[in-house]
Design a protein around this nucleic acid. Structure first.
Lengths: 218, 218
DNA sequence: GTCTATAGTTGGATAGAC
DNA sequence: GTCTATCCAACTATAGAC
């Protein structure tokens, strides 16, 4: 190691802390808590491992801090309280739109939550993360009561809708399965997915009149 | 360690090999390749770590063997070739039904594939795993051509449908978010999910005539 | 606040007896 | 084919200089 101590004027506790959180968020979103390496996190943001322990104590506490931060961001970004007040169709549209707004800004959030659910049963997030699901359940229930959504179990509906929206991000690094001509995550594909998923969910839920087709083969 | 060498008559290479694969499948489905511990796998099936290396060489090769096996099971269980021959609606029903048949038998398959996609970009599975998606794409394309499915990009549709079906298994260990009265994965919930998801996907895709509602509030 | 150096532990893999 | 014992690399976390 030839690196020299950073100049005093370049030291900034808030900035360093936030850089570590940003890097940790990306690394944890790929590796999960157990497989993530503090060295990977440190070198991604050009600090030393010691800094992680100086600011966060342990890897586990850093992980908790990461989830606490994204949880706050999500709660603010989704504006859940306001959704409960909107009429069901508008609330559904707004819910999905805000959800995708967040995922578009940070495509790794899907994997981060997926790993947390699978590997840790959501114990680092669930504390109050369930609100995101419960608001969606509420929207579906109100839509059914108002007669604008088809009848179905709203809790299953919430999980299915969420899956329809977020699965894309879990397979995003592997899209060459379906798009061999593309090797990586792509801005245009993302926009297409958002449009498709929004449309898909609406079609599944909405009671709607369809203009009769001329040719129906079965 | 007080355990004594197993009696010669109780030695069975095929059985041991298969026990290791079973245990590894479960552990990898929770931890992923990197975080999985060979000691965990070994103790789950009451053999020693040494046996894993005797039969499979390295942890990575064991992981590959696990994915190769589930890949074969899936290909056989899905009977993909036959699906290409069915009319679109029947093919879609059969596809989803067979998919859920496999997931019901092994609920950890969802997490196993999710981790593989997120953490390894599918490189241990994709070799030919894309066929499962491509058949679904083909079904959707044929359904649109026949006028029985709504118009949409079939590749996005495939990803969305898959997400609607499998997300449930990723959050299954965390269902107390929505069902506080239940603490664990549950047989009845699974059946409900299968029914809901099947219905959801059909409603989203099918061109159908809906009988007019009497009261529509917006 | 940031660095280097290192302690302490875990875990993948191997050697060799039975 | 299965076991015990052990090697060694990788990793988290700490100590202490600047």
């Amino acid at each position: 190691m030839v690196r020299v101590a950073r100049l005093a004027k370049d030291r900034d506790a808030d900035r360093t802390r936030s850089l570590i959180l940003d890097a940790a968020e990306r690394i944890f979103a790929r590796d999960g808590l157990r497989a993530a390496r503090t060295l990977d996190i440190a070198s991604q943001c050009h600090v030393t491992k010691a800094m992680i322990h100086y600011y966060f104590g342990t890897k586990e506490k850093l992980y908790q801090a990461v989830l606490d931060r994204v949880f706050l961001e999500r709660i603010e970004g989704m504006q859940l309280a306001s959704l409960r007040a909107l009429p069901p169709r508008d609330a559904l549209d707004a819910y999905i739109s805000r959800l995708f707004g967040q995922m578009a800004r940070k495509p790794h959030l899907g994997p981060l939550f997926a790993l947390e659910n699978i590997q840790n049963d959501g114990i680092y997030y669930t504390r109050s993360g369930g609100e995101v699901y419960r608001v969606l359940t509420n929207i579906v229930d109100r839509g059914m009561a108002a007669g604008v959504f088809r009848a179905m179990d709203s809790r299953h509906a919430a999980i299915i809708i969420m899956g329809a929206c977020v699965h894309y991000f879990n397979v995003a690094n592997n899209v060459r399965i379906l798009w061999p001509e593309r090797r990586h995550f792509d801005e245009r594909l993302l926009r297409e997915h958002i449009a498709s998923a929004t449309d898909f969910v609406s079609s599944a839920l909405l009671m709607r009149r369809v203009r009769p087709r001329t040719a129906v083969h079965r």
